[in-house]
Design a protein around this nucleic acid. Structure first.
Length: 114
DNA sequence: ATGATGATTGGGG
DNA sequence: CCCCAATCATCAT
């Protein structure tokens, strides 16, 4: 039988990290790259786009550093993005007409205490 | 092993 | 808005 592709150590660390983001909060690719001591936010996106545990692992709670929505399920536009938006909205996180996070204080910074 | 790709980012025009 | 360089894990050859 077909065995799915193995989750790499790096991906596992990314998933563990994003799992720390609470419901109703979001973080950024850049913030995660710092927390994981990786110097490439894009590498974080690479791992998240291949997340085999979505939405168990909340990869939809990761947005861009400029507070815009970012991508989802391998897409940067289209229906999947709509899904990401509705998932976040159902958790109380919203974006304005310019596509930016309405309440920046909802950003979750690793290592910061509330 | 080498080259290309990408859910990014910060800088510049 | 668009373009570019830097960065790096993963994928295709």
């Amino acid at each position: 039988m077909m065995k799915g592709r193995a989750v790499t150590a790096f991906e596992q660390r990314v998933y563990d990290q994003v799992s720390l983001v609470p419901v109703g909060r979001v973080t950024t690719y850049a913030e995660m790259s710092k927390a994981l001591d990786c110097h490439s936010a894009q590498a974080i996106g690479q791992a998240l786009k291949r997340n085999p545990f979505a939405p168990e692992v909340p990869c939809h709670r990761v947005i861009r550093a400029d507070h815009s929505i970012g991508g989802y399920a391998g897409q940067t536009g289209g229906e999947k993005l709509e899904l990401k938006l509705s998932l976040l909205k159902s958790e109380g996180v919203e974006f304005n007409s310019v596509g930016k996070l309405v309440l920046p204080e909802k950003l979750f910074l690793f290592g910061a205490r509330d």
